[in-house]
Design a protein around this nucleic acid. Structure first.
Lengths: 114, 114
DNA sequence: TTTTAGTACATAGCTATACAATGTATTAAA
DNA sequence: TTTAATACATTGTATAGCTATGTACTAAAA
């Protein structure tokens, strides 16, 4: 097992969260932000990111705005209203999951389950 | 997305942890313990559990002791020395991952990354 | 006494998802 | 001028948990 297995199911939520926080972001920017926020511990690969973004797009959770930077293309992604709703739901679910795992694995730190 | 996606990469670690804590356990017992410890939030399915246990067995991380309870068969699993080593490593990795996720998603609660 | 729920094992096939490897192209720094 | 960084993308692969299904015993409820 390596961290990438643990990341499963969380990447989409991370993307939605970052877009919610920052308004709009482009792919490469997302990878760098995740790297920064995680203290270099989580490195999102292109082979994970772009398929995930395309899926969000086809699901109508994000929309894209293409910008030309010189001769280079940048695609800014931002949440749709549905995307914002979904973000809330997934964020909460992930939050609860993380807490449940904490309770299960380190019960000493969190004495009583609600 | 449902919780099962989030569980990926964590199930084996949970099993190793439970066996380390309880000495030996059988499959059904593990499912019930996880259910209990997680406050009914994580329900390990047979289709997940038994393949995971068989993998641990073939990897030499656990061994099995078959016990007859009346006419019913019970298979108690317990950690091998390698299993104990692996448990430590995976447990630490999961712990760090959970913390990293907390820092990423709820930075307000955990101000500074080390 | 029959039915239901619970206990206890197991497997075949499915699906989702992150990754490795690879590719194209521009730009800035060494 | 070569290297590293920026910026997009796709193909194929592996992993792992799930659904559905199956067998069989036991205890409680109807």
């Amino acid at each position: 097992m390596n961290t990438s297995e643990l990341l499963k199911g969380t990447l989409t939520t991370i993307i939605l969260k970052l877009l919610a926080d920052n308004g709009k972001m482009y792919g490469y920017e997302i990878t760098q932000k995740v790297k920064e926020l995680s203290g270099d511990k989580i490195l999102v690969k292109e082979g994970s990111l772009y398929p995930a973004l395309h899926k969000l797009l086809s699901d109508g959770l994000v929309e894209v705005e293409t910008v030309n930077i010189g001769k280079r293309v940048r695609k800014y992604y931002y949440l749709t209203p549905q995307g914002q709703v979904r973000k809330q739901a997934q964020f909460k679910e992930l939050q609860e999951f993380l807490q449940t795992m904490q309770h299960m694995l380190f019960p000493s730190l969190n004495p009583q389950m609600p």
